[in-house]
């Protein structure tokens, strides 16, 4: 599904990714790689397949779009240490995807510290993530006149530029007769676009939550992910 935002045309993908055709850029938010592993330390025994599933989804998007540029919009890793603790095969898969692409890791609240710390080694264009990851680490990024940031700055600090956020894992509810569906969704206004989480085992925040209402107002436009399509509601 295509929408106009910040003066450019974007495609909302049923995977939850955002595609910018003009710049051949793919943006994915909140992969939360290593979430299950990190919870295992707490005593939970969740299926260890979530990360693999998330990577498989990402690989499908690579195959479908062959992007020139990829932006991970924060919280790609569930915790800071996860950046380095990534199982080797998963690291290799990520590296393979990044090969030949311009890859940016935007820092998030979960992985920001880890990425920055690990990425002190600077390349020609700024900090680099630790091997085997490739690309650059950044707190924000501008593409096509639109700003990309994991989560909003504290109130007041935000400038007026149209911004794309992750962080919230937004969901949207629809009621069909007596049936209630709650699915991950894109939510947007003229100024703000919030992406759904791309990770496989990530919960969500219903639209109507005060934080989302504060950011988007009471009635943002919404498109929910339903099977293999994106439905405007």
């Amino acid at each position: 599904m295509k929408i106009g935002f910040g003066g450019a045309e974007w495609e909302l993908r049923s995977s939850g990714a955002l595609w910018w055709p003009a710049g051949r850029a793919l943006v994915v938010a909140d992969l939360h790689l290593g979430k299950a592993e990190s919870l295992a330390a707490e005593g939970y025994v969740l299926p260890p397949h979530a990360s693999a599933e998330t990577l498989a989804r990402l690989e499908r998007e690579m195959a479908a779009k062959d992007p020139r540029r990829v932006v991970c919009l924060g919280d790609a890793f569930h915790d800071g240490d996860g950046v380095q603790a990534l199982p080797r095969d998963q690291g290799r898969r990520l590296a393979a995807m990044a090969d030949g692409r311009d890859w940016t890791w935007i820092t998030g609240n979960h992985d920001g510290r880890g990425l920055r710390r690990a990425g002190r080694e600077c390349g020609p264009r700024g900090p680099r993530p630790p091997a085997p990851l490739r690309g650059t680490v950044a707190d924000e990024l501008w593409l096509g006149g639109v700003r990309f940031q994991h989560q909003p700055d504290p109130p007041g600090a935000r400038d007026a530029a149209p911004t794309v956020f992750g962080h919230f894992h937004p969901k949207r509810r629809v009621i069909l007769g007596r049936r209630r569906l709650s699915r991950p969704a894109f939510l947007w206004t003229e100024e703000v676009l919030v992406l759904p989480a791309f990770g496989a085992l990530t919960g969500g925040l219903e639209h109507g939550h005060p934080e989302l209402v504060g950011l988007l107002g009471p009635a943002p436009r919404a498109a929910l992910l339903w099977r293999d399509r994106v439905v405007r509601v």
């Binding site: 969740l46 299926p47 085992l201």
Partner: peptide, 16 residues
């Protein structure tokens, strides 16, 4: 820790 048990169900069905 709260999760959608549906998501876990789907991942498990696919992988194990």
């Amino acid at each position: 820790v709260t999760f959608s048990s549906d998501l876990i169900y789907e991942v498990l069905r696919r992988y194990e």
